[in-house]
Nucleic acid binder design. Structure first.
Length: 563
RNA sequence: UGGGGAGUCGUCCAACGGCAGGACGGCAGACUCUGGAUCUGCUUAUAGGGGUUCGAAUCCUCUCUCCCCAGCCA
């Protein structure tokens, strides 16, 4: 991957690989893999793994495979395969012609299993799931051997063959590795290698009714693909001895090294696929691609760019300690990117009517606005202006609080790219006392936004012409959870009790007419309000905009403190 | 209390026996036709105790805290 991202700092994994390259450990070869299970959508935590695995491969002139870890037909679906491919590509990485499935290797895995049985290193066990659990012991007590542990190789071979042939019902037998029931590492207490599952597999159909377990399938898959560095998350750390045991016993040529790093935790959101699914199925969000979801598809719909996500992954680093990255960093990354590339446009989210009393009734004019002050190459556009305009409700205070220097009675402000404007009166709702209309005068000499006499104004407001503005729907998003750690709950509660009831606010807003041409996926900065991205829900004349992120809002802080 | 890991600014990541540094956040200021952007400055950090050493975040040792593991899930 090439790009303008900040230079990649090193980390302990890159240090290991660098050393392996220098010592020629794998003949100077680096080959990684990204191995998602197709049982859910990818999220920002997967992006960290994708950037690590593909990134490392690129940096060391190696390769990275995409491999679907599809060893559990009960939970996996093709729908997920397609979304995962789309998301990896979108993030900016390409597996070339190396897209594999663990299920591609089922024949080889079976052959290896037979080999282990022959060597007396695996046996068919007739214990039920519950009995296996009882025999496994506990964290502090050793397990007991299965009564079937010492079957002859011949008997095991025959039984395993019959398991494969479908002679036994689900759960009636397993193939187990014969290791050590007294090991302090529970993974080594004769782990199950194969279970019987009469289930249709999304790729192999009904060819198999026995399926390999992760620990057995993963190391064998890595070995078959010639992986050199098998990078995974911390919870697999105590599976490493088992990973190595299988490959050592099988005496395979390629024995990759497993390296574990800490998974990503992001404040104010959750990363567990199971919990994310709960949000979707419980109707708390509209789907995996709901812009509030940390799923890649959600971030994409929200308006995040692939560049910003890659940059974020670079900045968070890679280490072994559990951590919680501040959401503010992700927001910084998207602002930084969008600031450089987004065209600016004016939209009024919460309109307040302004009548410019000294502006001619039937007149309108075209004013020139800069598309992006950060990039003059993006040119200019014209914006229509007329007697009645809308400004942001928050930009007017009848009785200005301390440090408020926007519009209020008697005060002059600038309308961006238009004129200086002075408030001369207000119209209130008789019942509520709420200001429903503001009356102002403009100074014709300030056309374009500069005053010939050099007088200064403290605020510049965005606006739209009432007669020309188009109606848009603005969807404002806030964090899905109220606590930085959504799992921090009272006894008996779960993460859902920390959900933010105001994570979505839908507004009928007004925008300058050029936005009527906006296409889903187009991104804009609504001046002073934030970055917005056109949602696929947009129909005909009414675009829907998702707020990707607000602009940094110094005033909001000042106001909060002043209260 | 078995096994495996991890402890450095508020947060994340560096420093690999030799000046504890960067980024984000926060605070203050400059500038500004976005209270945006940009720029400048500031920011109570090596879990604790012993030891080795001229010198320790780094090595040794004891202690403490946190995370993971008892799926026929991955």
């Amino acid at each position: 991957m090439t790009g303008p991202e900040t230079p990649r700092p090193s980390d302990f994994i890159r240090d290991i690989i660098k050393e392996d390259m220098e010592t020629g450990k794998y003949g100077g070869r680096v080959h990684t893999r990204f191995p998602p299970e197709p049982n859910g959508y990818l999220h920002i935590g997967h992006a960290k793994s994708i950037c690590l695995n593909f990134g490392v491969a690129d940096e060391f002139r190696g390769l990275c495979n995409l491999r679907f870890d599809d060893t559990n037909p009960a939970k996996e679906e093709v729908e997920y395969v397609e979304s995962i491919k789309e998301d990896v590509l979108w993030i900016g990485y390409d597996w070339g012609d190396r897209m594999y499935y663990a299920s591609d290797y089922f024949d080889q895995m079976y052959a290896y299993a037979v080999e282990l049985i022959r060597m007396g290193k695996a046996y068919v066990c007739d214990l039920s799931a519950e009995e296996i659990r009882e025999h496994r012991g506990t964290l502090t007590q050793p397990g007991r051997n299965s009564p079937y542990r010492d079957r002859s190789a011949a008997e095991n071979l025959e039984l395993f063959e019959r398991m494969k042939a479908g002679e036994f019902p689900d759960g009636s037998r397993t193939l187990r590795a014969k290791i050590d029931m007294t090991s302090g590492n529970i993974n080594m207490r004769d782990p199950v290698m194969y279970r019987i599952l009469h289930a249709e597999h999304h790729r192999t159909g009904d060819k198999w009714c026995i399926y390999p377990m992760y620990d057995y399938a993963h190391c064998v898959s890595d070995s078959i693909e010639g992986i050199t560095h098998s990078i995974c998350t911390l919870e697999f750390e105590d599976h490493r001895p088992l990973y190595d045991w299988f490959l050592d016993e099988l005496k395979v040529e390629c024995h990759p090294q497993q390296i574990e790093f800490a998974r990503l935790n992001l404040s104010y959101t959750i990363m567990s696929k199971r919990k994310l699914l709960q949000l979707v199925e419980g109707g708390h969000v509209k789907g995996w691609d709901d812009p509030r979801m940390p799923a890649i598809s959600g971030l994409r719909r929200r308006g995040y760019t692939p560049e910003s996500i890659r940059n974020f992954c670079d900045r968070i680093g890679v280490a072994k300690r559990d951590s919680m990255v501040d959401m503010a960093l992700l927001e910084f990354c998207i602002r930084e990117d969008l600031n450089k590339r987004s065209p600016r446009v004016m939209a009024v989210l919460r309109p307040l009517k302004v009548v410019i009393v000294n502006y001619p009734e039937n007149k309108s004019e075209e004013l020139t606005a800069v598309n992006n002050p950060e990039d003059p190459g993006m040119g200019t556009r014209t914006v229509p202006f007329s007697r009645i305009i809308y400004i942001e409700r928050d930009d007017f205070q009848e009785v200005p609080q301390k440090q408020f220097f926007r519009l209020s009675p008697g005060r002059e402000v600038r309308l961006r790219y238009a004129y200086y404007l002075t408030c001369v009166g207000v119209v209130k709702d008789e019942k509520t006392g709420e200001v429903v209309e503001v009356h102002c005068t403009y100074d014709p000499a300030t056309r374009g936004g500069d005053s010939p006499d050099g007088r200064k104004v403290k605020a510049t407001l965005h606006w739209v012409s009432a007669a020309h503005a188009i109606e848009i729907e603005a969807r404002l998003y806030n964090t899905l959870f109220l606590k930085a750690d959504p799992d921090d709950v009272e006894e008996g509660q779960d993460f859902r009790s920390n959900m933010n009831p105001d994570s979505l606010e839908t507004l009928a807003a007004r925008a300058e007419p050029c936005l009527s041409d906006a296409k889903p996926g187009d991104r804009f900065q609504f001046e002073r309000m934030g970055y917005f991205c056109v949602d696929p829900d947009s129909s005909g004349g009414k675009p829907v905009f998702n707020r990707t992120v607000t602009l940094k809002d110094t005033w909001a802080k000042v106001r909060k403190k002043g209260k």
